[in-house]
Computed example of a mutant assay.
Amino acid sequence: MRARTLLPAAVAAALLTVSGCGSGSGSDSADDAETSPSKTATAQAPAGSDGSGTRADGAKVPEALNFTATTVDGKPFDAKSLTGRPTVLWFWAPWCPTCRGQAAETAKVAADYEGKANVVGVAGLDKNAAMRDFVSETGTGSFPQLSDEAGDVWKRFEITQQSIYVILDKDGNTVYEGLLPGGEGLADKVAALTG
């Protein structure tokens, strides 16, 4: 009987640790939001990564982009394909109102910078069916949306809460990490990297 009492408390504590949706705890101040380029360089290769540092065409792949995943619609995704362009990784959860508020601006940036920068959604903290519903309801299906139910990509980038953007330069270095309420400022950050 004691295990039944402790289990809900443990689950609640874990959710409080990874949540933060709308709490502002993902500060967007310059000191808290900026991160060093070495953060992703120290990331461990997740399950599914083949460990190869080159693409089939011979292009050198930054460690940050050396992983594979599956999209919310069940298709394989190889992050090596993002090599050579600035990349926005948008970490979201389907039940998060802050993420829902970021969806339109994120989709607009993906469309406006198509061919110049990559935008990839990384859904977590729920089941794939809820992730697919979110994509359908928010109109964000025009750019890749990864289903990260196991949290492998989230762990790779040390993400502990949803509605966070990680922006990589063309060399795979992290140049920004933080919360952008409503996606405000995302276009400016991508524009600065695409010239």
Rank of each mutant, 00 (worst) to 15 (best):
Glu114Met: 01
Gly74Ile: 00
Thr17Arg: 15
Ala41Arg: 14
Gly22Glu: 03
Asp78Lys: 13
Leu89Asn: 04
Ser19Ile: 02
Gly115Gln: 10
Lys116Phe: 08
Lys60Ile: 12
Gly58Cys: 12
Asn118His: 13
Ala64Thr: 05
Pro37Cys: 06
Gln102Thr: 00
Thr42Leu: 15
Pro94Thr: 05
Ala104Gln: 11
Val61Tyr: 07
Pro97Trp: 07
Asp28Thr: 11
Asn66Ile: 05
Val11Leu: 14
Asp31Cys: 03
Arg100Phe: 05
Asp31Val: 12
Ala45Leu: 15
Thr98Cys: 10
Asn66Ala: 15
Ala33Gln: 05
Ala13Met: 10
Ala33Thr: 03
Asn118Val: 05
Lys60Thr: 15
Ser25Ala: 15
Ala41Ile: 04
Glu105Leu: 02
Phe77Lys: 09
Gly58Ser: 10
Pro62Thr: 06
Leu89Gln: 03
Asp28Tyr: 14
Ala64Val: 02
Gly74Glu: 07
Val120Gly: 05
Leu89Gly: 01
Pro8Ile: 04
Val119Leu: 10
Gly48Met: 06
Pro76Phe: 08
Ala9Glu: 11
Ala64Asp: 02
Ala103Val: 00
Ala110Val: 06
Gln102Asp: 09
Thr17Ser: 14
Pro46Tyr: 00
Ser52His: 09
Gly22Pro: 03
Asp50Asn: 14
Gly58Leu: 12
Ser81Glu: 15
Ala103Lys: 01
Gly58Arg: 10
Ala43Gln: 01
Thr71Leu: 04
Trp90Cys: 00
Leu65Cys: 11
Val122Trp: 01
Leu65Arg: 13
Gly24Ile: 07
Thr71Arg: 03
Ala45Tyr: 14
Ala93Thr: 01
Leu89Val: 03
Ala103Leu: 02
Lys39Trp: 08
Ala12Asp: 10
Ala103Ser: 11
Gly115Ser: 09
Pro97Tyr: 04
Lys116His: 09
Ala10Cys: 14
Thr17Gln: 14
Ser27Leu: 14
Ser29Leu: 12
Trp92Cys: 02
Gly48Cys: 08
Ala79Met: 09
Val11Ser: 05
Pro94Ser: 14
Val72Leu: 02
Glu114Asn: 10
Trp90Ala: 11
Thr54Pro: 00
Phe91Tyr: 01
Glu34Leu: 15
Ser38Cys: 11
Gly22Phe: 04
Thr40Pro: 06
Ala69Arg: 04
Gly22Met: 06
Asp73Lys: 02
Gln44Met: 07
Val109Arg: 01
Ala10Asp: 07
Ser81Ala: 15
Pro94Ala: 10
Leu15Thr: 06
Gly115Ala: 12
Ser49Ala: 15
Lys116Arg: 15
Lys39Gly: 05
Val122Ser: 02
Thr98Glu: 12
Lys60Ser: 15
Ser29Thr: 15
Gly101Asp: 05
Gln102Val: 01
Cys21Pro: 00
Tyr113Ala: 11
Gly101Ile: 01
Tyr113Thr: 07
Gly24Lys: 09
Cys21Ser: 13
Ala9Thr: 05
Glu114Gln: 13
Cys96Arg: 00
Ala43Asn: 02
Pro86Cys: 09
Ala111Thr: 12
Val109Met: 03
Ser52Leu: 10
Thr68Gln: 14
Phe91Leu: 04
Val120Lys: 02
Cys21Tyr: 02
Lys80Val: 09
Gly115Glu: 07
Thr98Leu: 12
Ala45Ile: 06
Glu34Ser: 11
Lys75Met: 04
Thr83Asp: 10
Asn66Glu: 13
Gln102Met: 08
Arg85Val: 04
Cys99Met: 03
Ala59Tyr: 03
Asp28Cys: 11
Ala14Ile: 08
Thr87Val: 13
Ala43Lys: 01
Gly115Lys: 11
